[in-house]
Structures are given as structure tokens and as C-alpha cells.
């Protein structure tokens, strides 16, 4: 049973005084994968700009544009139509020792080391190792997700885009980005390669067909147990047909949905609206 979702992701930034020469990268195009198929994906920019697309180191489709004339607002509208699939049954994981051996000197090494947002204190790393003792990779992911969910409550406004895993742990509060960073940090501390996933989550899987519902962009993780396995620590679930994958990296900094620099005074906080429509 496959789902078909239309996603409309609007971002609008207003500038109190006109902004000039703005340079931007947008990572909002979902990936086509065995578990999801992108039927259509586009980005509209206002003021109008010519768009250029490339695939970056992480395999993400990036749209690049610049605005050299002065402007008082910038709006991005990313729309996509995606078919998703329910989660497949969990495969038997490799033993932890085998995972350690295969990731010691391979491309997986990249997903084992801490990055700025996935650095935690040695104490917390030790706690993660202790919690994972004797467990297989799936059990470890479940145990560490529980550890995060017990400690951290989902609260908006306590952390920002630059916050890291340790901040969320210390404040006992955070959003999906923080849950994902923290879970990734703990899994890596336990020796399991883990990547950060940026994407979308339909908020109500049983929503009426063809009726738009408001939602948000989302982040979760994938850990490697012989193959990559998704884990959504914010919701304590495995990603399924409500999840749409856009990008994977070591942390948010590798996959930001929008980043830009421009000349001018600081703009207002971006207004973001994500809308989902179930089509099938």
C-alpha cells in the first residue's frame, strides 16, 4: 500500500530595509529511493531568479540562485509530489562487533565521528555506551531513543537552528532537529554509524484525501546495522509512508533546507508554512 503526498513548503523572509545581492542554496527536493518515488518537484522563487541545480557530496539535490537587484522580501515555494511506502520488516542486524569492524575503516567512518551539533559530553557518551551494553543494534537504537525521549520533551522555542545535542539534553527540551542530533550522537557513541535525515512528516496519516493539512519539515535518523534503518526519535516510531526523505548527512549543517547570505540589515525571522495533501 503506497501513499501519494503533495507537499507545499513555503518560506518567506521580509527585510525591513531592502536587501541586495542575495546568494542562496535550497535543499527541499525529495530523493527518489527504493522506498519513495518523486513524481514531481519544483521550486519557485520570488523575486524571479534563474535556478541552477546540482547534486552535492551527500547526494542531495541542491537548487542555487542569486538575486543581485535589491528586494524587500524573498519567498521560496517548494512543491513536490511523492509516493511513499510503509516501513519494511526490520532485517536481522549484524552483531555490534561486526558493525564496529565494518565501520572502522570504510565510508561508514564518516557517520561515527561527532560534528559540532552532535558532540556530547564524555559522561553522556559513557551513559549511552552503558545503556547499549549487551544489546543488538535495533535494541540499542530503541534504548537510546527511549533515553532521549525520557529526558527531552518536545518543546518549541527552547532551542534554535544552531543548538546542538548537548544543549537539548541540558535544557531537557527541544524539537525534532534536537531529537535527531541527540539520538545520532548517542548511537555514534555506542559505535553505530548514524546519519541525520532531513525531510517531511505528514502530521495525520489518516487525513481526508485531497484536503490540505498544515504540517512541518521534519528530521530523524538512520543507523547502520548491515543496512540503513530509519528511526524517528521525536515520535518513537519507524519512518513509514508519512515520512518523505529530502537529504541525509552527518547533521543539520550538511543538509539545511535553505541557507543564504545577503547584503543588508538583518531580516525578520522566516515565516515557514508546510502543507500536506494526501492524494492516494
Amino acid at each position: 500500500m503506497a501513499g501519494r503526498l503533495r507537499i507545499r513548503h513555503e518560506t518567506r523572509v521580509g527585510y525591513p530595509s531592502p536587501a541586495g545581492s542575495s546568494y542562496n542554496e535550497v535543499r527541499m527536493s525529495p530523493l527518489t529511493l527504493p522506498t519513495q518515488t518523486v513524481l514531481d518537484s519544483r521550486l519557485d522563487v520570488a523575486p524571479a531568479a534563474s535556478l541552477w541545480t546540482y547534486w552535492d557530496y551527500w547526494g542531495t539535490q541542491v537548487t542555487v540562485f542569486d538575486l543581485t537587484d535589491s528586494h524587500t522580501s524573498l519567498s521560496l515555494t517548494a512543491t513536490s509530489l511523492v509516493e511513499t511506502a510503509p516501513p519494511t520488516p526490520l532485517p536481522t542486524p549484524l552483531d555490534r562487533a561486526e558493525i564496529a569492524a565494518r565501520s572502522a575503516d570504510s565510508r561508514l567512518t564518516e557517520y561515527l565521528s561527532a560534528t559540532p551539533r552532535t558532540t556530547v559530553s564524555p559522561d553522556l557518551a559513557a551513559q549511552a555506551c552503558a545503556a547499549a551494553d549487551g544489546l543488538d543494534a535495533h535494541q540499542t537504537a530503541a534504548a537510546l531513543t527511549d533515553l532521549v525521549r525520557e529526558r527531552v520533551s518536545y518543546t518549541q522555542g527552547t532551542t534554535g537552528v544552531h543548538s546542538g545535542a548537548q544543549d537539548a539534553w541540558d535544557q531537557r527540551a527541544g524539537v525534532c532537529q534536537d531529537f535527531a542530533h541527540l539520538t545520532a550522537a548517542l548511537l555514534r557513541a555506542a559505535g553505530i554509524p548514524t546519519r541525520y535525515v532531513s525531510g517531511y512528516l505528514h502530521p495525520s496519516p489518516d487525513a481526508e484525501l485531497d484536503r490540505p493539512v498544515a504540517g512541518e519539515s521534519h528530521a530523524w535518523v538512520e543507523y547502520w546495522a548491515g543496512e540503513w534503518i530509519g528511526q524517528d526519535p521525536t515520535n518513537g516510531t519507524r519512518p513509514g509512508e508519512s515520512h518523505v526523505i529530502v537529504a541525509r548527512g552527518r547533521e543539520y549543517g550538511d543538509v539545511p533546507p535553505h541557507k543564504g547570505v545577503y547584503r543588508g540589515a538583518p531580516g525578520e525571522l522566516p515565516q515557514v508554512r508546510v502543507e500536506f495533501t494526501r492524494l492516494a
Binding site: R107, E110, S113
Partner: peptide, 8 residues
Amino acid sequence: VPYRLLYS
């Protein structure tokens, strides 16, 4: 050359 040399 070990991967970690690159990644680190």
C-alpha cells in the same frame, strides 16, 4: 591511507 585521515 585510512578513511579517518580524510574525514577528520
